[in-house]
Design a protein around this nucleic acid. Structure first.
Lengths: 251, 251
DNA sequence: GCAGGTATTATATATGATAAATACAGGCCC
DNA sequence: GGGCCTGTATTTATCATATATAATACCTGC
């Protein structure tokens, strides 16, 4: 074992070495570590650099290929795909981008997705939600109330609320936003925390969504959810302008 | 080489053997080949069954893991994740599902996604589309007109039109629907082709969307696009009812 | 009955050898 | 000169095998 010492690096996080390499490469790729002056290395080269065996490295590269970040051909090497081919709707990819290469622009674009989907999801929930789904919404709302009093986490309870509605919609694609929204909300908190006066949408606004769903009123549910989304988007737009005015970088 | 004869199977399709195994396993998984009576085999077992080496098989399995279809642990084996964890928004996964395990229900749910996104995309396009994006829309529309006269392919020109608008929106997530819509439209053609009288949305309806975008009228663009989406959804709903009435299976 | 060690059996990792694909250079013909 | 063929070098793809690690079941001694 020529590089057994590298095994010492293998600690927290992903259960095994392959997943560590996956994360490492994923982050390096989306943050632009590789580019014109620093092309993506060959398999053998990367093995040396990362202290990984070829099995581990190749499997990580294949996973990144499956997510659209890389492509490989014999003799031509392995290269980073243009960003338009990345699977932005893959939770890992979105997480790497938002967490490690934060840009209000991307968050804004993602919030436009939420603006498109979530009001319709609320309307569908108002039509189709079964007892179990309604319970989940109530539970999440209660957590938000508890969080207001300091007895629960505001972030995870907010996530739980939106996820509960997406799942209540009965649309499997809507429910897929689960992981994406989690990634997005976790990073947008960083943004809104900067300015103290600013807060996330109130519990009352969320309550209105839930009430409309329980009243089986699709239009009201949709409108109430749209209100939440527009509010979130406004916050992000303001933060973006602030960041741009104070001279932060954008992608 | 104990199973060199298997190489003879390696022909069309994916450039290499790993991708063939990926497709094969992906399809087998989504079509329900593995289940209670037929658990997912061990690595060694699958190698034998498919005539693949461990490298090839492991890399394919890792790609499926990256798409949320599989998960593996030492001693516990490799198993199929519950469907709610599959990355439905991964083009490969959606393609396998729609192409090999067709269900009007899933197509309907996906069309709900289009119903949510595409009107907003058209509105954004009306606001932000640059000259190049508008050219692409015009080109696609011309292809649709040519297709009406039999001089182009109706399916690919229709896809090109919707993709052009998604890309004109400037939202990178919206543009991601590209691959998904292609998969969906290719399969929904099968559905609408069954009943002869039924046709896809007219060129005139598409023209209205383009006109509104060129006139920088977001609301009109959104409304015109929503009209297309509702039309498509109605078709699928009818087909679904027909299929259910004639006793076809659903997922 | 239970605590702790041991055997078992999956995947995970490491590594060497060989095959296939293709960019590139060099030589040939016209 | 320009286009075409061909050989070579380089990179990933594939195959094979050995070893490590992890999770579980089992077993043993008390």
């Amino acid at each position: 074992m020529t590089n057994g010492n590298a095994r010492g690096l293998r600690h927290e996080m992903g259960r095994n070495f392959t997943y560590e390499i996956l994360q490492r490469l994923g982050v390096d790729i989306v943050t632009g570590t590789y580019g014109v002056g620093n092309p993506f290395p060959t398999e053998a080269e990367l093995c040396k650099q990362l202290g990984a065996s070829r099995s581990v490295l190749r499997e990580a590269v294949k996973m990144l290929t499956a997510k659209g970040l890389l492509k490989a051909r014999p003799r031509q090497g392995t290269w980073i795909e243009p960003e338009r081919n990345w699977n932005l709707l893959d939770p890992d990819v979105l997480y790497w981008l938002l967490e490690r290469k934060f840009s209000p622009g991307l968050l804004l674009e993602f919030t436009q997705v939420r603006l498109a989907i979530e009001p319709l999801a609320a309307a569908l929930a108002a039509r189709h939600a079964d007892a179990k789904a309604k319970e989940a919404i109530t539970a999440a709302l209660n957590r938000m109330k508890a969080a207001e009093a300091g007895d629960d986490d505001p972030l995870t309870s907010d996530i739980a609320f939106h996820v509960a509605i997406l799942e209540a919609s009965g649309n499997r694609f809507y429910a897929q936003l689960r992981g994406l929204i989690e990634a997005a909300l976790r990073t947008s908190i960083r943004l809104t925390n900067r300015r103290k006066g600013v807060r996330l949408a109130s519990v009352a606004d969320h309550q209105r969504v839930a009430d409309a769903i329980f009243a089986s009123d699709p239009d009201a549910a949709s409108a109430a959810m749209r209100h939440l989304m527009v509010e979130a988007m406004t916050l992000i737009e303001q933060a973006k302008e602030t960041m741009e005015a104070t001279g932060a970088e954008e992608d």
